[in-house]
Simulated assay, not measured.
Amino acid sequence: MSAVTEARPGPADGGPGTRLDNNSTRGRFRPRTPAPVRSLGLRALSVGSLLLLWWAVARAEIWPPVILPSPQAVWEKAVATTTEGFSGHTLPEHLWVSMRRILVGSGYGTLGGVLLGLLIGLAPAVRALLGPFISFVRTLPPLAYLSLLVIWFGINEEPKIWLLVIASLPPVAVATADAVRNVAPDYLNAARSLGARSWQLPLWVVLPHALPEVMTGIRIAVGVAYTSVVAAETVNGIPGIGGMVREAQRYNQTDTVILGLIVIGLSGLLIDWLLQLVDRVLAPWRGRT
């Protein structure tokens, strides 16, 4: 028997012991689907399931078409409204007029809400004077004061804009005031020690610190203004997407009503997505500090 034992390749030499089992490593190195792709897929699945359910219920004719039209009927109405128009205006024209009213009304409401929120948050006397009034207006539904605005301003554009201003101002004011009151005194003292004047503190210290909460209030305010546009356009709202829905409701044109609701919802999602982009640009530190 030879004294030298024949060396056999082992795991360290790349022998059979190092052979990887495909079944054991297949799950370990399986590529994962990116999160944005999964999110988009789930959203598409949700929308597709809803459309399928809508089509199935309409096809079963549980309710007559005047109650629940089919998706195809709503699509055909969308094409007809875009090309031929409704009440003398096309669908893009109705949408643009409503968007302009929302942008103007919520813009003025946002500006007033930020200024008022700064005053309420910084001055206790202003907080005691105007705080209850802001809370009172915030609890009022838009239809509660629409009639009063019509009496004051007539039936043209003024009552619609004022309704959206009043609807969007309180959420921004409340969010700004709460954020201002939560500013740490150390920030203010540090700014004063660096030579900042009193009138510079709200602009360069308080407002940047409160900006994430202010942007949240603006998103809420724009959403409230958008939900109020139908109420605002119940009075002489043509052209306007809310006025189109109101006019179609009078003549039981359910497909046009559903079309208007879909357009309002999709455009509202687009506006909220744009506001989220603005939030990430203006306040990139949200959630990091």
Rank of each mutant, 00 (worst) to 15 (best):
M1P: 07
M1Q: 15
A3G: 15
T5M: 10
P9F: 04
G14R: 06
G14K: 03
S24R: 00
R30V: 12
A35Q: 11
P36I: 02
S39A: 08
L40E: 08
R43N: 15
A44V: 13
A44N: 14
A44R: 06
V47P: 14
W55K: 01
W55S: 07
A56I: 13
A56P: 02
A58I: 01
E61D: 14
E61I: 03
L68M: 03
P69G: 15
P69L: 13
S70F: 09
P71M: 15
A73I: 07
W75Y: 07
W75M: 02
V79F: 04
T81Y: 00
G85P: 09
G85S: 03
F86W: 12
F86I: 12
S87T: 14
E93A: 06
H94N: 06
L95K: 11
V97T: 09
V97G: 13
V97W: 11
S98E: 05
R100Q: 10
V104R: 01
V104K: 03
G107C: 05
G113N: 05
L115W: 09
G121K: 12
L122Y: 08
A123G: 08
A125R: 06
P132M: 00
P132C: 00
I134W: 07
I134K: 08
P141S: 08
L143Y: 14
S147I: 13
L149T: 06
F153W: 11
G154V: 13
G154E: 12
I155H: 05
I161S: 00
V165C: 00
I166F: 01
I166R: 00
A167Y: 02
A167W: 00
P170F: 07
A173E: 06
V174N: 11
V174R: 14
A179H: 13
R181C: 02
N182P: 02
A184H: 13
P185C: 12
P185Q: 14
L188A: 05
L188F: 09
N189G: 03
A190W: 09
A191N: 13
A191H: 12
Q200S: 04
Q200V: 00
P202H: 07
L203K: 15
P208A: 15
H209I: 15
H209K: 15
L211E: 15
G217C: 09
I220V: 06
G223M: 01
V224S: 04
V224F: 03
A225E: 00
Y226V: 05
Y226A: 06
T227E: 02
A231I: 07
E233P: 00
E233F: 09
T234A: 15
V235T: 14
N236K: 11
G240E: 13
I241G: 12
R246M: 01
R246N: 06
E247F: 03
A248H: 04
R250G: 07
Y251K: 06
N252I: 06
Q253R: 13
T254W: 02
T254Y: 06
T256G: 04
G260Y: 02
L261T: 04
I262C: 11
I264F: 04
G265Y: 12
G268C: 04
I271M: 01
W273F: 07
Q276D: 08
L277S: 01
L277I: 09
V278I: 13
D279I: 03
D279A: 08
A283F: 06
W285K: 15
T289P: 02
T289D: 14
